[in-house]
Simulated scan of single mutants.
Amino acid sequence: MIKINIEQFIKARKAMGLSQIELAEGICTQATLSRFENNGQVPNLKILIKLCNRLHLSLDELFPKVGISYSETVEKMNKAEFFLITSKYEKAQALIKSISIDSIEDLNLVLRYHYLNGFIMIFQSYSVTDILFTFDQVLLEEETKESHIFRLLAYTGIGMVYTREDDLEKAEFYFNKVLEKIYNYPAKNMEDTWRVLNIVFQCGVFYSKIHELEISDALLNYAVSICSDNHVTYYLARAAIQLAKNAIIKHESKQKILELIYDARAYSKINKNEIALKELAQLEQGVLERS
């Protein structure tokens, strides 16, 4: 919740020499104004605007710097999330570090901050304890409909860090928790779609790691389907690369593997993903050198 600068409001009223009754006349009851000034109970927007107009106050003056800070924070998180999904981890980290978590009062923004920070920490090779502590900031909050996706992302991140530490039993515990719920998650906007793709892709990578290739392929093909349905290209290359790796593990035909590699290369070129293109070149060379 954004804090209104009630002190500024009261100061303006007193500067004009108005009592609560005089200010409220024709706009609202004195009791409504009193509840606002004394208890912080904000009247509806129409009443608040009329009161401010009588005091020659703009709404901006009641939200000092909060509106600007909020929008800047959201913009930074949007950019950081985009950098995260496009594997530009240093840029994402720089943006997250520039945000003061203590200045954020919206719970969903706080949860988003911790989810982004946790994933960035994974890719920047932070310690297990630091990463788990970061994801705990999400999981220890009371679950709501709005926070549900961030909890799933936290479980995914914990599964990823246990995978990184080669503790696959613990990792599978968390990825299984995610799989129980992600298929039914209703994405409401593009950011939600990115998050669902992130989860589905990371699950696909994990199940390939433990040689559950049927599950992995199904998840990765689901990710491709989400990308196609929502005109999102950023995960197409990554999903196609992992499908190619799975095909290599399964000793699929050279033609099928190369087809997956060529698909992934096309997606990577669209997104100018140099990291993926280098990886694909190595994969292709290995396949072509097979007898």
Rank of each mutant, 00 (worst) to 15 (best):
M1R: 09
I2C: 07
I2G: 13
I2P: 15
I2N: 14
F9P: 07
R13H: 09
R13F: 09
R13D: 07
M16N: 11
M16F: 08
I21S: 05
A24G: 03
E25H: 07
E25G: 03
I27H: 12
T29C: 14
S34P: 07
R35H: 05
E37M: 09
N38Y: 04
N39R: 15
G40H: 00
C52E: 02
R54P: 11
L55M: 08
L57P: 01
E61H: 00
E61T: 00
F63R: 09
I68L: 14
I68R: 11
S69E: 13
S71Y: 15
E75H: 15
N78M: 10
A80T: 00
E81F: 00
F83V: 07
F83P: 04
L95P: 08
I99E: 11
I99Y: 10
D102P: 09
S103G: 02
E105A: 02
E105L: 01
N108A: 07
V110L: 05
V110H: 05
V110G: 04
L116N: 10
N117K: 04
F119M: 08
M121H: 10
Y126H: 12
S127I: 00
S127W: 00
T129S: 11
F133I: 13
F135V: 02
D136Q: 15
D136R: 15
T144H: 10
T144E: 10
E146K: 05
E146W: 01
H148Y: 00
I149P: 10
L152E: 05
A154D: 10
I158G: 11
Y162R: 03
R164V: 03
L168P: 15
E172M: 11
F173W: 09
Y174W: 13
L179H: 05
L179T: 04
E180P: 02
K181I: 02
N184V: 00
Y185C: 09
P186Q: 12
A187E: 04
K188W: 09
K188H: 10
M190R: 08
E191H: 00
D192I: 12
I199V: 07
F201D: 03
V205T: 03
V205I: 05
V205Q: 07
V205Y: 11
V205D: 06
S208T: 02
S208P: 01
S216E: 03
S216D: 04
S216R: 04
N221T: 05
N221Q: 09
Y222G: 04
C227L: 10
S228F: 07
V232K: 09
Y234C: 10
A237K: 08
A240R: 03
A240D: 04
I241M: 15
Q242H: 13
K245D: 06
E252N: 13
E252S: 14
S253T: 12
K254Y: 01
K254S: 04
K254I: 03
L260W: 02
D263H: 14
R265M: 07
S268H: 10
S268I: 06
S268P: 03
I270W: 01
I275L: 11
L277Q: 15
K278N: 15
E279G: 03
L280V: 01
A281D: 14
L288Q: 11
E289G: 02
